[in-house]
Structures are given as structure tokens and as C-alpha cells.
């Protein structure tokens, strides 16, 4: 059995490769249908952006809104900060 296996494994396409290819096609398709996921680095990035903002101006947690929009061609990262008191304006960047 051991001897045969060695030859069999070499001559056959390993099934894990098939699984990976099928998954990649399927998941790309499912994500395309409204199944959008924000990139995994987003929480960390948001935290760091907040830290930078707070170097210059004091803002509350709920004064900062992060949004990621997903279109067919592009992804849009929207950052919306409500500045305190008299500076009551919005700042936007993408």
C-alpha cells in the first residue's frame, strides 16, 4: 500500500488544489453579489487615524464615522469627523 501510494500521489492532481480553485471562484462570485467585506487592516487603520487626529484636536468616539463603500470598480473609504464647538464643520477625505 505504501509503495503504491507514492506513485499514486505523484500522478494524481492533489484534491486540495481542486478545493482551493473551486473556493476562489465561488467566493469571488459570492462577494461580488453584495457580499462585500472591508479589508482586515481597517480596524487598526481606523484606530491609528483617530490617534493622529487626537494629536491636534480633541474629538469624542462618536464624532468620528468611518464608512467603506463598495462599487463594482472601486472601493471608497470615507472618514467623517465632526469637530467640536465653533469649528462645527465636516472634514472629508478618501
Amino acid at each position: 500500500m505504501g509503495l503504491l501510494d507514492i506513485f499514486r500521489n505523484r500522478s494524481q492532481d492533489p484534491s486540495a488544489k481542486m478545493a482551493k480553485e473551486r473556493l476562489q471562484i465561488l467566493i469571488a462570485h459570492e462577494r461580488g453579489q453584495g457580499q462585500f467585506r472591508a479589508p482586515h487592516y481597517l480596524p487598526e487603520m481606523q484606530k491609528e487615524i483617530l490617534e493622529v487626529i487626537r494629536k491636534y484636536v480633541h474629538v469624542e468616539d462618536d464624532a468620528v464615522k468611518f464608512e467603506v463603500e463598495h462599487n463594482e470598480q472601486f472601493e471608497l473609504f470615507e472618514l467623517n469627523i465632526t469637530l467640536p464647538e465653533k469649528g462645527e464643520g465636516n472634514e472629508r477625505s478618501d
Binding site: 457580499q35 467585506r37 468611518f66
Partner: peptide, 22 residues
């Protein structure tokens, strides 16, 4: 992958526009 999509869209953090779930 489906659950990751749901986490990113249906959680309280997603709805309130807070930093997303880690």
C-alpha cells in the same frame, strides 16, 4: 467567508459606523 461578510455588515459596530469588528 459568508460569516465575515455578515460581521462586516450586520453588527452593531457596522450599523453605528464605528470601527469595525476585529
Amino acid at each position: 467567508d459568508r460569516m465575515l461578510g455578515i460581521l462586516a455588515s450586520k453588527s452593531r459596530r457596522a450599523k453605528d459606523g464605528e470601527t469595525s469588528i476585529k
